[in-house]
C-alpha cells in the first residue's frame, strides 16, 4: 500500500539518516522525500514528508522504531486517492439534486468528490459546476467518469470532461 508520513526531525546532523534506518529495516520503498529545512516548526524542528510503498502489517513496527529513535511521527496515513480528474457540469445542476450527483460518486468507495464550485446566474437559467473527483487509480477515474456520464444523461446535464494527455 501507499502511505504518506510526516515526521519532525531535530535540527542536528545525522537525523535524516536516523529516520531512514527503520524504513530500510521494514522494507519500505521510498517514493518521495520532501525535507523542509526552511520551514522549521515553532519548536525548531524540521518537517519531513515521506511517501512510502510498504506492507500494511509493518506500519506499526515502523512507527514504534521511529519513536524509539527520538523522531516524532506527526501524521501517518494511507494515500488512497492517487488520481484526480476535473469535470465541468452545465444544466440544472442544483435542481437535479447535486447532493445525489455527489453521492453517486462517493458511494462507489473508490472515488469521491473533493472540490465543487457552483455558479448560478439566475433562477431559470442553467447553472454550471466545476467538480474535482479523486480516485484510487486510473481505472477507477474512468469508472467514476462513466457514472458521471450516466448521471448526466439522466439529469440532462452537459458533462465536459478533460482531454486526456495521450491517446493510447
Amino acid at each position: 500500500m501507499r502511505l504518506s508520513m510526516d515526521l519532525e526531525l531535530q535540527d542536528i546532523p545525522g537525523q535524516l539518516l536516523l529516520a531512514l534506518q527503520p524504513l530500510k529495516e521494514n522494507k519500505a520503498n521510498i517514493i518521495s522525500v520532501v525535507h523542509h529545512r526552511d520551514r522549521k516548526t515553532p519548536r525548531g524542528m524540521i518537517p519531513v514528508r515521506f511517501v512510502l510503498e510498504m506492507d500494511r502489517s509493518k506500519i506499526e513496527a515502523l512507527q514504534t522504531k521511529l519513536k524509539e529513535s527520538g523522531i516524532s511521527v506527526v501524521r501517518a496515513g494511507e494515500d488512497r486517492f492517487m488520481e484526480s480528474v476535473s469535470v465541468v457540469l452545465v444544466g440544472h445542476v442544483l435542481d437535479s439534486d447535486i447532493g445525489d450527483t455527489v453521492k453517486r460518486i462517493d458511494s462507489t468507495g473508490f472515488a469521491e468528490v473533493m472540490d465543487l464550485a457552483l455558479t448560478m446566474p439566475g433562477v431559470d437559467e442553467p447553472s454550471s459546476a466545476f467538480m474535482k473527483i479523486r480516485a484510487t487509480g486510473k481505472a477507477e477515474i474512468q469508472k467514476a467518469l462513466t457514472i458521471l456520464r450516466e448521471v448526466g444523461k439522466e439529469k440532462k446535464l452537459l458533462v465536459i470532461e478533460p482531454i486526456e494527455a495521450e491517446a493510447v
Binding site: 465541468v88 452545465v90 444544466g91 455558479t119 437559467e125 454550471s128 466545476f130
Partner: peptide, 18 residues
C-alpha cells in the same frame, strides 16, 4: 450551444479552456 459563460469562467479559473 449548451456551454455557458459561467462554465467557461469556472474552467478558466482552474487552468482549463473549454
Amino acid at each position: 450551444t449548451g456551454v455557458t459563460p459561467e462554465a467557461l469562467a469556472l474552467a478558466k479559473k482552474r487552468g482549463y479552456a473549454i
